[in-house]
Design a protein around this nucleic acid. Sequence first.
DNA 1: CCAAAAGTGTTCATCGTACACCCATGT
DNA 2: ACATGGGTGTACGATGAACACTTTTGG
Lengths: 239, 239
Amino acid sequence: MAGTTINHQMDFYSKYPKTLVAVDSIIFGFNQNDLELKLLLLKRNFEPAKGEWSLMGGFLQPDESLDDAAKRIVLQLTGLADVYMEQLYAFGELDRDPGGRIVSISYFSLIKINEYDRQLAKENGARWIPLSEIPELIFDHSEMVENALRKLRIRARTQPIGFELLPEKFTIPQLQRLYEAIYQMPFDKRNFRRKLLSMGLLEKMDEKEKETSKKGAYYYQFNKEKYEELLQKGFNFEL
Amino acid sequence: MAGTTINHQMDFYSKYPKTLVAVDSIIFGFNQNDLELKLLLLKRNFEPAKGEWSLMGGFLQPDESLDDAAKRIVLQLTGLADVYMEQLYAFGELDRDPGGRIVSISYFSLIKINEYDRQLAKENGARWIPLSEIPELIFDHSEMVENALRKLRIRARTQPIGFELLPEKFTIPQLQRLYEAIYQMPFDKRNFRRKLLSMGLLEKMDEKEKETSKKGAYYYQFNKEKYEELLQKGFNFEL
DNA sequence: CCAAAAGTGTTCATCGTACACCCATGT
DNA sequence: ACATGGGTGTACGATGAACACTTTTGG
């Protein structure tokens, strides 16, 4: 490919060495039934390390940006196109992949677990694995996961991203259970509710969720416009 | 270079497209005389964008890790080998560099401004530029700088990295001036001193600094061992 | 003796945290 | 009627923020 001109770009740098670049995606989901945060992992069906557990990944193509590659990878595995995603870190040790020298950039994605394409995931050999049961992963993927979890915990405290893991409408207890799963610790329900509602970002609906209790819990919706508006005024989300 | 085997690695991935990878370094320094945080920037002496201001950067070599490349780049410009450094972000837009498709990974470095090799920097066309006077930079380098500054501000609040920008021994007022430069706001000197000393990470010396005042201010040293020890016990640095 | 920077305590408001009881309803 | 999860208010301690005067000493 050396010498190919893309996008009307010049080619001033053709004498410099190129590197294989990959993108690996840590895909988080939350299932309200078993109350555990999960990762979408897959068994590699190619060499090296065929048959072992790994993250979903792929090589960066010459005509796509890093973000595009990350989107493509999640789309390929889940069928979802509009997914919350954040770049995490570039892993660049020489021997991180025994199959060749690869620089890999990790992204984490938060998906609404009820919306993904089960069929597609199955075809790719993917499975949802609870955090507590994550197996050994290939190469430095375990490090990527730890790193992602650390960042998720920081982000979830300071940005309203928990909602990305829940359906459009959700109840306060559901939201609390999500945060408890993320931080692996219990929260006081009065304090939790007060803090969240005090920010004025949740809109109460008339409808109740009646599956998990006889009394039923009111559904709420996250008001993104309101959040953007408050952001302008210097508001800081903080749990 | 395709097909080269490094480090006893196999070559399972030779059919995939490679990309040019660069590392760009945002180098911070602090000069106590003019009380401004500064960046080490250079005028590019090669095409494209020759003569314009940019960050120091370089291409990733096949036999070095990303971290190694970042170290090499800072060493080339400053002569310093042991520098605090942190990876920031991978920039991967297709058209970010008009000279060709490059994925660039940014790092920030904190250096003790009295220790760098002035001669070497000069030869490379580098200059220290105060934050308030940063010119237009090439490509997305301005974005990299903003990004670095944001991260530096977050880090300096939650990790004891300010000391990387000061000499081994420093006074409390000097440290305060540094933080005021980082956050571009004044701090209350009583609160500042109390909070820092209360962590027990600074060791008072007998010597006084007498350049900037007649009374003189005691020198302190940061006790790294103590910090590591406290870290184990769950301590969190927080300014 | 005076200018200039270093050093020192207290008060108040705010926020996080701990904690126990009533409510609604499906079975 | 009772079991189950939803919903509510208050008190206390800790922490961050504001604020003014004394000390030292070179010139």
